[in-house]
Amino acid sequence: MAQKSFREAINEALHEEMARDDTVFVIGEDIAGGTGGDGEEDAWGGVMGVTKGLLGRFGSNRVIDTPISEMSYIGAAVGAAATGMRPVAELMFCDFAGCCFDQLMNQAAKLRYMLGGQAKVPLVVRMQCGGGFNAAAQHSQTLHALFTHIPGLKVVMPSNPRDAKGLLVEAIRDDDPVMFMEHKFMYDDKGDVPDEPYTIPLGIADYTRDGEDVTICALGRMVNLSNQAADELAKEGIACTVVDLRCTSPLDEESVLESLEETGRLVIVDEGYPRCGFAADVAALAARSGFGYLKAPVQTVTPPHTTIPFAPILEELYIPDVDRIKQAVKATLA
């Protein structure tokens, strides 16, 4: 199977879906490059090169550069979705959600419900998340919990190129608004990606490692760190199951609980803020529905509840790493 990067996998999904369905279009800041200025069009293909090549193939009617106003173009995308299009909007950083949160929280998430199903909002908002780039407090957050909190929004965070393509195709074809979070650290990660179109259903987790001692739940980049921790622990005789949840909404509770029933020990790894976050949510699931399985207190590996520091040394300490995951696993066995 062809090796492709995370960036190429997403690019391929966009190409395939735009070719398959002409109601699909992309919209965002600088996704075509050069609009309204003297610069070269499609020079980069968006700040991370994800939309490269779309402009030449589908034209500027379907690859729309916008002014720097999240409120306006996310609002436009919500409206387009409600009137029959399938927009894929790019929010450059998930941190900028603050500028368009009413459009997402009160419009996109609620229209279908408030209109009794007479309208639907088949919108995808792609956005970068994650720290480790020394990009400081306003460009490094991982805000999946913010979207997960809102009923009516689906939230996806892939951990590898293959899932990125399959989940994005599924998200575009889904009739509800989907927040699609791409960790900025992973665009160059390579993996097997089938050339032909395929989908991965939303809310179905994947076990990336299989072991009967401890269950590790994670999302996105944290899955890769958890895999690494599991591989190192396997050499010490500790067998971990790594549950890649893939989505926080809908959440695959079954996959968590079935593994927990087997292991009785749970570690949750997350890059989001700890309070009312993904780790707390899954820990609550274990306490609520898996209490009888637990042999040890649930461990969470998250950043501290503080703003992401700019100083590289502090940022390194801030983001969960393999050692902290290993310690947490061992704490459940102590």
């Binding site: 259903p201 809310g203 179905i204 809908p250 695959d252 079954e254 079935e258 029933e261």
Partner: peptide, 10 residues
């Protein structure tokens, strides 16, 4: 009975 018709352990 699960999501997308998936068979669970239950």
């Amino acid at each position: 009975t699960g999501r997308a018709g998936r068979i669970s352990k239950t």
